[in-house]
Design a binder for these strands. Structure first.
Length: 463
RNA sequence: GGUGGGUUGGCCGAGAGGCGAGGCAACGGACUGCAAAUCCGUGUACACGGGUUCAAAUCCCGUACCCACCUCCA
């Protein structure tokens, strides 16, 4: 059984055949570090992390490159609004993003190149494009360099559009373009409005990279002229990915074999980037549910399906996930087992995580029914591991030693109370027994009576 | 104007011609001193109108509504 993936370029699910047997090169457009990451932003991080983990599980030697765009218009304007240098602003937001990824157990990529670190590579590519007649320096002396879309006959091939059908940008300030659809490879430095630190020397004077060129340059540098999979959010299909492909192919590089795009998470039917302030920023969502629960919520939907975010649905997902966790707790220590066939089939079918999660629940039920749940628990662990949802993964944070001490302290206190309750029950003094249970419950601790005596755990629903 | 996606039970969310994915909630039952947890059972859902077919949520035609992208966006 082989992995099949939906390829945006061909619009079909097809067998994944790597360029080089046993290896997989993956490039994903990461974020522009311009503001605090929200739920929508991290979806792509989680989705492609699942892809990375699955490829590794299948035995591929994965090179996963996920870039960081650390210079662009928005960064400049937001930094200025906040009164700090653009690079400081980008660095702060980058740290926030790292924290968000860590909180969701998004494993780091092989390498995370930053745009500003690759200006020479971009210049090299731009000069190659000029030499081949696919790019030109603007005639107006602005220092801008544009890609000449009319010179590249296949332009539009990725998104199946013809140049003449595309609407030219409304704001199209022609700025010396030959065609309004030509896009910037290099942006000349605007002395009056932009800091000099946001400019680099080039054959066309000081300036900064256009948005698309960085990915062509970095993908080429780290994965080579041809690589397997290129990913990102749906909105990037056009113009970003179309332009990346045009640049790279015009420069003579075959570029990506497969294109994968994750769908949006919206709120109230609107994209998150447009909507409501910071209520959906990762730190604020994590005040409500744990990172592992948010990740489970994201993984429960297929990566190509649009998700309408709601806190109710998020809470439901969290409740469902706790069922899996409590099964594992009951099962005790078990070794990681084999993946059920149905799970493997689901994952191989274009990362069918919803079907995979259904298998997860089926096995949990089986395990809850069994006298000895260790086989099922082992399978559950294996599945959770692939999905990046193993609660025991140290990546979720070891909990500080302080926490550990607290747990031990609480354990002693609760055990004392539970002993009293057990005695009361033995004496058939149920009023007393229930009073103790209520007292413990009031503290946010649920108790479960088992054949081996009562156990306690923090109550579901309270984070 | 061009390109792409969507509308599934109370809610979330899969599926892509024939056996009721799964979860949450609800109801009944088992277990329990009572609960909790767990298990068992309970649903005749696929926007609307036609058509194809022995068989349609799934294919075809039409309609309605929603969303995304068209050079700043995950």
């Amino acid at each position: 059984m082989t992995l099949r993936l939906y390829d945006t370029a061909t619009r079909e699910v097809r067998d994944f055949v790597p360029l080089e047997e046993g290896k997989a090169g993956l490039y994903v457009c990461g974020l522009t570090v311009q503001s605090e990451p929200h739920v929508g932003h991290v979806r792509s991080g989680v989705n492609f992390d699942v892809l990375q983990r699955w490829l590794r599980h299948l035995g591929y030697d994965v090179s996963f490159i996920r870039n960081v765009t650390d210079i662009d218009d928005k960064i400049l304007t937001k930094a200025e609004a906040q009164g700090r240098p653009w690079y400081a602003h980008a660095a702060i937001m980058k740290r926030e993003l790292d924290k968000a990824y860590a909180a969701l157990n998004v494993a780091p990529p092989t390498y995370e190149p930053a745009a500003t670190g690759h200006v020479p590579e971009m210049l090299e590519l731009i000069e190659m494009l000029i030499a081949k007649g696919h790019a030109y320096a603007a005639a107006d002396g602005s220092g801008d360099v544009y890609f000449d879309v009319r010179s590249w006959q296949q332009y539009g091939e990725l998104t199946h559009q013809r140049i003449d059908d595309m609407e030219a940008a409304e704001d199209a300030d022609p700025r010396g373009k030959r065609d309004p659809r030509d896009f910037a490879l290099w942006k000349g430095w605007k002395k009056e409005s932009e800091p000099e630190t946001a400019s680099w020397p080039s054959p066309w004077g000081r300036g900064r990279p256009g948005w698309h060129i960085e990915c062509s340059a970095m993908a080429g540098k780290y994965l080579g002229p041809a690589f397997d999979i290129h990913g990102g959010g749906v909105d990037l299909r056009f113009p970003h990915h179309e332009n990346e492909q045009a640049q790279s192919r015009a420069a003579g590089h075959p570029f990506a074999s497969y294109w994968m795009h994750n769908a949006w998470i919206t709120t109230a039917g609107e994209k998150m980037s447009k909507s409501l302030g910071n209520t959906l920023s990762i730190p604020s969502v994590l005040e409500r549910v744990r990172g592992i629960e948010l990740r489970f919520y994201i993984v429960s939907a297929h990566y190509r399906s649009h998700v309408e975010f709601s806190f109710e649905a998020l809470d439901e997902a969290a409740v469902g996930f706790r069922r899996i966790e409590s099964f594992l707790e009951r099962a005790g220590d078990v070794a990681v087992g084999e993946l059920p066939e149905a799970f493997v089939a689901a994952m191989n079918d274009d990362l069918g995580t919803p079907a995979a999660v259904a298998v997860l629940f089926d096995v949990v039920r089986d395990g809850n029914r069994a006298d000895d749940p260790s086989v099922q628990a082992g399978q559950v662990l294996a599945m959770l591991d692939v999905l990046g949802l193993d609660p025991a993964d140290p990546a979720w944070g070891p909990g500080s030693s302080n926490d550990q001490q607290l747990v031990e302290a609480v354990d002693v206190l609760v055990r004392g109370l539970l002993d009293q309750r057990t005695q009361a029950r033995a004496d058939k003094d149920f009023a007393a027994a229930d009073a103790i249970r209520d007292q413990i419950k009031a503290a946010g601790i649920a108790i479960t009576d088992t054949p081996d005596g009562p156990t306690w755990a923090l109550e579901a629903g309270t984070k």
